[in-house]
Write a protein that binds this DNA or RNA. Structure first.
Lengths: 379, 379
DNA sequence: TTGAAAGCGCTAACAA
DNA sequence: TTGTTAGCGCTTTCAA
């Protein structure tokens, strides 16, 4: 192993000079600087990270806590992770990956033994058990997601509540009165995972405000579950004319589910998905979507953490605003839809064919039908 | 920050004693040991990882290089990653995550500055640019996957070649004479990604040996691409009676693709998938599969790396043998299939309806039809 | 603008 | 069985 002393000797300077060339914490004459750099190059010197950490108490490592829990859609999470890793690299930070099995103890261990300068925490639950620890830690942390209260924390999140509401608003404006919500798998809600919980709440609240009849339904991501869930939604409310899908894994099967009921997108049913770029486009016809900025969440989290590491004060909550991308799935004409739905002869046998999905944790609830209204013109 | 000296003072012993209690590298009397441990507990002491690394040149960190390249199916990769992280934890090792943007330079940097004791390398290509570097590194490394030559390396891999061959054998034994191969997305083959390349080669070679007419076709994972690919396969060889699918993302759409041609599984077409547990089961009917032991690959890689870190010699190549799980998708009767296929009236308009997929990198090739043989009885 | 030297917190001879 | 002490490779004060 080649050390800073070797470099100093080779360049004919003191070790401290080499150190200052490296860190730039002291002005060095151009002559010596280039001599030192040349020696570094020739000898192929790399500063020893551990030794540096020992001397400075800085590791240039951030820990990334990614509990891959049941029901989460891995590719989306990984988008955040890779974006975070890339952003961290730009700041000279490496990323220590921590998964589920490490949990709170793992965090405590890494923090205690100073293996990381800061923490990035993903997949946050409303009452996340890691939160109390994060508040105590010597190292700063940033959560991607929001627990029930963000006091004393730094959180970046997509405004899932606004996203859920925006779906309803868009559909309500287009004249839809009966909207179904196809959510994440049941365990995700049972854990009160922040993003799922908030989207659902935003959806429900907006539906209430607009006097929309709404039904919510969790679903696993496989073919079968999605078909059953879609069928169940329409069995509860055959007059449903729009679907909000907050489940990336289910996205691909929604069309098939509707087809199994003899309903077509967008003529019979409008669909809006809440998902990252590139997923809603793949459906045929393409789904209108609310963009979930996965990459930006990862990036922003790193920026915030770096700011905190530099001693800057940062907002305790950064919310990214939803953005709607309109596509073919909401190009239907609600007037015609309502008219068609009024005819109960449309596939009644299929509508009642699906069995009620068992263990629908988040439950199913409906609001009383609203009085008929004149559909607003589509915007 | 609380140091080993604080503990020593509190317990009334020398710092080295505390150190030895911690490392267990020297016998300590039960009395002092418990006194020291008590002090550690009371003071809430955690050894400083950096300082320890500085003194021992051991970081207790392994770097995991996961270039998330285009076309790879993220969930499967993540299974390996989480299995590796979990296994590493059991050995007291933390995991540094390195993604695409870091590439060879990133590896060199982490190795040079001794930020990791060893390297775990995923998504290996036949002529992976990281391989020459790995050979030079001071730190040991283990690849999950095989480059063209494994000399001087340590590789763990699933025997994809045998897996591809096993599919053919199974289907040939069941009497199938025309078999299609639905592969990974084109870019994966263009990069000569080891696992994809080998499965395809194994399939083709076995088909040759058995005198089977085979067609291979890469496909992206989205609905549309899969449909087109399946249709193209059957357009090239309408008498195809079996499909081998080596593309996890496509798995869900294969059934739909076949249905679009009016062919049913398993009556008209047998299907075998090469994929990890839990994916083939979701198709309806369930697909027979060759288990891809993703978790075990991650685990084994860590075990091998730990062995190397302990100075043990390990085999340069560990291959996990394929295992076939028979399910409903190969329960068809080939005799009947052949009879049906002989009738050209079966959906001819659908067969020719699909357009040829563009840019099919791995190309499409067929072997001359073999002379009719008496189908072997199913095993 | 540069050097010398005292740490950083820990481990591991060496000595008792 | 335990203590003393000299490192590990780097940073950073202090002094020139």
């Amino acid at each position: 192993m080649i050390t800073i002393c070797d470099v100093a000797r080779h360049a004919g300077v003191a070790t401290s000079t080499v150190s200052y060339v490296l860190t730039g914490k002291r002005p060095i004459s151009a002559a010596t600087r280039s001599r030192v750099l040349e020696s570094i190059r020739v000898l192929g010197y790399h500063p020893h990270a551990g030794a540096r950490g020992s001397a400075t108490s800085r590791t240039n490592v951030v820990a990334l806590a990614v509990p891959l829990r049941e029901g989460v859609y891995v590719p989306v999470l990984m988008r955040m992770v890779t974006a975070a890793v890339t952003a961290a690299r730009r700041h000279g930070l490496n990323v220590l990956l921590m998964t589920a099995d490490q949990g709170v103890d793992g965090l405590r261990g890494v923090a205690g033994s100073a293996q990381a300068d800061g923490f990035l925490v993903l997949d946050v639950e409303m009452n996340d058990e890691r939160v109390p620890l994060l508040r105590q830690l010597a190292q700063p942390s940033v959560l991607i997601g929001q627990p029930a209260t963000t006091a004393g924390l730094t959180c970046v999140d997509f405004d899932f509540e606004a996203a859920g509401a925006a779906c309803v608003e868009h559909l309500a404006d287009a004249g839809h009165r009966y909207i179904g919500f196809l959510g994440a798998p049941t365990p995700v809600y049972q854990r009160r995972t922040g993003f799922a919980h908030r989207a659902m709440v935003g959806f429900s609240a907006a539906a209430m405000r607009r006097g929309i009849t709404s039904t919510i339904m969790p679903t696993a991501g496989d073919h079968h579950s999605v078909l059953k869930a879609v069928q169940a939604l329409f069995r509860v409310h055959p007059s449903t004319t729009a679907l909000v899908v907050h489940n990336e894994a289910a996205l691909g099967w929604v069309g098939a589910g509707l087809r199994s009921l003899g309903r077509k997108v967008p003529e019979d049913v409008a669909v809006i998905a809440i998902c990252p770029d590139g997923l809603a486009e793949q459906a045929s016809p393409s789904f209108t979507s609310i963009r979930l900025p996965a990459e930006e969440l990862g990036r922003r989290a790193v920026e915030l953490l770096v700011a905190k590491l530099n001693g800057q004060t940062v907002p305790s909550l950064t919310l990214l605003e939803p953005e709607l991308a309109e596509r073919a799935s909401t190009a239907g004409v609600p007037g015609r839809m309502l008219a068609r739905r009024a005819n109960p002869a449309v596939n009644p046998e299929r509508v009642t064919a699906g069995r009620r999905p068992s263990r629908s944790g988040a439950g199913t609830r409906t609001l009383p039908p609203t009085p008929p209204v004149v559909p607003a013109p589509r915007t």
